[in-house]
Design a binder for these strands. Structure first.
Lengths: 335, 335
DNA sequence: GTGAAAGCGCTAACAT
DNA sequence: ATGTTAGCGCTTTCAC
């Protein structure tokens, strides 16, 4: 095979192909550009393709991006408290992006301190848009990107306080659904597991709704969306009080509560204790958990996101903003 | 703020900064190049940085890549039967890549037919290396990349039949561990859930080890690594036969077996039925499942992968190949 | 310490 | 239907 036909060190270029095929570089360019389909003499196309194959030539996407001022790359920034939820969303999102003819450059934030550096990398890459799913990220951190004029789309995190593009849910409304469910089924001694600066306002909205019905949450304890923090939260709540319900700001913590309640406190769920989570993780839907939870209409949201990407890559200066409603999935941890 | 100082439509360039700072473009380039740190008069640096900030200037990574012949991007190709396993690996991997100063361009394969097209995109992007974790991908599909001279590293999938770079496990040895465990604890009526063309040889090695001890598996049924396929497999096995153990080629299916055995057949695990999985999913480790499983030394493997990336980006023509041993995590689904 | 010229690989605009 | 010219934004010589 003609494996070694390229110039040492690098890849074959359009010029290499052009010379060997006896045409100009622009002709090679056109052969590999769908827009010129059919506007080049078939035998020329044939010859160019032939030589290209011999040389293992592929158009250099980097050079193309430079000229076209479009990379066809979407940056996807995911948060550190990924848990089960974001990693699922991630693969879905990547597939959608791929299907739209683009590619996903994925960034994962684990610590606060390097966020600026990472966003700096995003900025330098001249991606066509940035999708941010990390709810732990304060919006002002994204200012450098916005100031550059790089389109930012917040996904599945509140964008209410800003005028950036965003696809999010009315999480207060979701929290109301949870509160209603518990109150409706007779729960009165209610504990809450919340993130100290989750910024989602889920627990707050939940507590407010209880208050409207003259119920005060027995206790609120903190968790960081990890399974372990959920365990500790549950131990604390169930040791200190005689509860009949726990509301968790996130499913992974709800799963931990369920395990602790059953295995460590011998409670029957939902008879002795009801548990409601938030987010509809894949894992929470497993039969051994089957957690009642407040769910995002994730498919619709992804549809909206892809539309937003399409829009925003055409006109970066008009933000696309859509809010969705949440729904309650009543499974087996509530009556 | 000087938000609108850029030329219409695009981003500020080094030239823009140079003009406004009264220097040449090359000086701007140097100010933003770490290698020139300290070799430029501090007041020049100061002035350039000042103007750059006013203009929201960032060096154009695309242009840099074109000149440097390095994108600092690693392509990561993940398979369709992602389940819980790959999505976790993915976020870990992305973080590692990030920490090494590179970025991850993620591709997800869902259907067989567009694989070639997707790999074509990978090829055009001039990524510094390609990491392939999809075990459903036949190695010959990667030939175009290799022929181009683009470094491919197989990760967590057998690379034994090839001479491509790879980081993988001795899955036969892993399967032996599972077989030993079941036989040692007195299991004799053993069912198997395998992937018809998983190509991992896990079930085969498992069966061979049983044979060495004069045991024949009662039945082998097929699953595609999904939870649902695991359910069906379990129903079939447990309806047809009186088993005392099931070996699953993958954890998600083992979880399904556990649920079906407990909830639909009223079996006690591990007393009535032992279950062993493979891969050590995060979900399989949850207390409500706590599946005994054959695990990859995933941290070591990621370390090795990052080393391999480092190597291969320097010298693309010397493959880096390492095989690891697997270990048995005895949890609560075996005696 | 800084600059001028050339070129990375490609394509838009204008020829022919 | 194909070629020429110029330039995308940056960096690498080689000068000064």
């Amino acid at each position: 095979m003609a494996r070694k036909a390229q110039p040492a060190g690098g890849y074959a270029t359009g010029k290499d192909v052009a010379q060997r095929a006896g045409v100009s570089t622009i002709t090679v360019s056109r052969v590999f550009n769908p827009a010129w389909e059919g506007k080049i003499r078939p035998e020329t196309v044939e010859r160019v393709r032939q030589v290209a194959q011999e040389l293992n030539y592929r158009p250099n996407g980097v050079a193309r991006s430079l000229v076209n001022r479009r990379t066809n790359i979407i940056a996807v920034v995911i948060g550190q408290s990924a848990g089960f939820f974001y990693s699922e969303i991630l693969t879905d999102l990547v597939r959608r992006i791929q299907k739209s003819g683009r590619q996903a450059l994925v960034f994962s934030l684990d610590l606060y301190d390097n966020v600026a550096r990472i966003l700096e990398q995003v900025a330098q890459h001249r991606v066509d848009a940035v999708v941010v799913t990390s709810s732990a990220l304060r919006t002002d951190v994204m200012r450098p990107l916005e100031d550059m004029g790089m389109p930012v789309i917040l996904f599945k995190r509140s964008a209410e306080q800003t005028n950036i593009s965003g696809i999010w849910c009315d999480e207060r409304q979701g929290a109301l659904l949870a509160a209603d469910c518990l109150l409706r089924t007779g729960c009165r001694q209610i504990g809450i597991v919340a993130h100290p600066h989750g910024g989602t306002g889920r627990a707050q909205a939940f507590a407010e709704e209880l208050a409207r019905q003259n119920i005060t949450p027995v206790q609120t304890v903190w968790g960081d969306y990890s399974y372990e923090s959920g365990q500790q939260a549950a131990r604390k709540l169930l040791t200190d009080h005689q509860l009949d319900a726990i509301f968790c700001e996130e499913d992974t913590m709800a799963m931990a509560c369920l395990d602790v309640a059953r295995q460590e406190f011998g409670l029957r769920v939902p008879d002795d204790l009801a548990i409601i989570g938030f987010d509809n993780n894949t894992a929470a839907a497993l039969p051994a958990y089957n957690i009642t939870t407040v769910a995002h209409p994730i498919v619709d949201m992804l549809d909206a996101l892809m539309e937003a990407i399409e829009q925003v890559t055409c006109d970066p200066h008009t933000p696309v903003r859509r809010q969705f409603e949440m729904s309650l999935l009543e499974r087996s941890t509530t009556k």
